[in-house]
């Protein structure tokens, strides 16, 4: 417990630091002295950004954990199960069909598409007779690529490439007050996943064991993937796609703690938030005054860690 408290403290420190990093200078002294400009930047931009980071980082990491447990593969996350790319496609379709729709409606459409995309992925997996653990993320990455190509094609036809790029790349420089609040919904959903953690852990033992323990396996899996789709759609519509986060955080936590979801969730949430905060701060300072988007920083780090995870894991099929 004390270790978790320490982790929360570190995250809080990062969150605090996040408030004071950026192009326009916000100083603690200015805040305390009640300087108007400093307060304005803090409330309109820095605070929303910090909260957006915290919320999206924590909920994306939990969504990743949930995906891994429900699909029963260590190397999956919403970004390589067709979920995230489908959410993007849903947003694009909504933009085309009903350009004036409120964000929440776009989000709902994105979540619907995300669910359909995940279902498609699961359907493909069922047709793969030999479930090599390496094959699952591979098929997922390819499927995500295909869905993305489809999205890009539609966007190209309707001259919306720029809009799509904004969702594709996790970037928080545009987050302001009034544009991130949907993320609270995502975080709430992630908390629901925590409450139902025991069920998911049992479901993660596989259909046969789960059924003999009296669990409606199919329904729990569907619930899990619905939560994942909703969280993903929320994050994509507010801050864009954040790849690898949902993959690497649960894996690192599970290396340290094992696979009991109830115990892992708080750690995953805190580590996810901390990682996102740290990457965002790095992106802001490394090339100041320009910003390196969060998606890029996390992409380099995440793909490198993913690679190490694959290389470390034992080759069962060899």
């Amino acid at each position: 417990m004390t270790r978790l408290a320490a982790a929360v403290l570190v995250t809080a420190g990062l969150a605090l630091a996040s408030l004071f990093v950026g192009v326009s200078n916000v100083s603690l002294r200015g805040i305390l002295a009640g300087q108007e400009l400093d307060w304005l930047v803090l409330v309109e931009s820095r605070l929303p950004r910090m909260l957006a980071l915290l919320l999206s980082g924590a909920s994306m990491a939990i969504a990743g954990l949930l995906t891994q447990i429900v699909i029963r593969n260590r190397f999956v996350e919403p970004a390589n199960t067709g979920t995230m790319e489908s959410a993007g496609l849903g947003l694009l379709v909504m933009t085309l069909v009903a350009p004036g729709a409120p964000v929440i409606a776009k989000m709902a459409a994105g979540a619907g598409f995300a669910m359909a995309g995940t279902a498609l992925f699961l359907a493909i997996l069922r047709r793969v007779p030999l479930r090599d653990p390496m094959l699952v993320p591979l098929v997922g990455i390819l499927l995500s690529g295909v869905i993305y190509a489809g999205t890009a094609f539609v966007a190209y036809r309707f001259d919306l490439i720029q809009t799509v790029l904004a969702w594709t790349q996790g970037d928080l420089s545009g987050v302001l007050r009034g544009r991130y609040e949907l993320l609270w919904l995502g975080a709430t959903l992630a908390a629901v996943a925590w409450l139902a953690a025991d069920r998911f852990t049992v479901a993660g033992l596989g259909r046969d064991i789960a059924s003999s323990l009296g669990l409606a396996h199919g329904r729990v899996v569907a619930l899990g993937l619905t939560i994942v789709s909703l969280v993903t759609a929320v994050v994509v519509v507010t801050v864009g796609m954040i790849p690898f986060l949902g993959l690497i955080v649960p894996n690192i936590v599970s290396l340290a703690l094992g696979d009991n979801m109830r115990r892992a969730v708080p750690w995953v949430a805190v580590s996810g938030a901390a990682l996102v905060l740290a990457c965002d701060i790095l992106g802001r300072v490394i090339r100041a005054p320009y910003e390196v988007p969060l998606g890029t920083v996390l992409g380099v780090l995440g793909s490198a860690v993913f690679l190490v995870l694959i290389l470390r894991s034992r080759d069962r099929a060899a």
């Binding site: 390496m134 993320p137 591979l138 390196v292 380099v300 793909s303 993913f306 290389l311 099929a317």
Partner: peptide
């Protein structure tokens, strides 16, 4: 194994692309 090799290659490709993007930024 073939699948592991493929996954390594695909992820390494993503890593290289991300790294290139990072350097570009």
């Amino acid at each position: 194994s073939l699948h592991r090799l493929l996954l390594i290659g695909v992820v390494f490709g993503i890593f290289l692309r991300m790294l290139a993007e990072f350097v570009q930024r």
